[in-house]
Amino acid sequence: MPSALINVPAKAKRGSVIEIKTLMSHIMETGYRHTASGDVVPRDIITSFTCRFNGTEVFRADLYPAIAANPFITFFTTVTESGKFEFEWIGDRGFSETAQASITVE
């Protein structure tokens, strides 16, 4: 299973802005490269990343071949209640991975 690294603060003040950082293991093969014998190396990239908080989508990104291997996606959000972030990466060749992180809001 591909590894993911997630950085979500364990605690936050109600209404404060928090930064979320995610790193997903993926080769992000562009589809533009050729092997020594001239065959195209088929495209194999992550195409979409989504983050939900307690079921509601809070962030989404579409990814393209120009994005480097092992995409590192960071973004900010605000939290008003304790709960769970769910992350989902979807890509070529049926790639589908999820990860979770909880936060306590005080």
């Binding site: 591909p2 590894s3 690294l5 950085n7 950082k21 790193l23 293991s25 291997a69 092992n70 590192f72």
Partner: peptide, 17 residues
């Protein structure tokens, strides 16, 4: 900064593996 923070350092993905 990428090297300094384990959750930003892609090398850590290999360490996990």
């Amino acid at each position: 900064a990428m090297q300094d923070e384990d959750t930003a350092n892609p090398g850590m993905l290999f360490v996990l593996d």
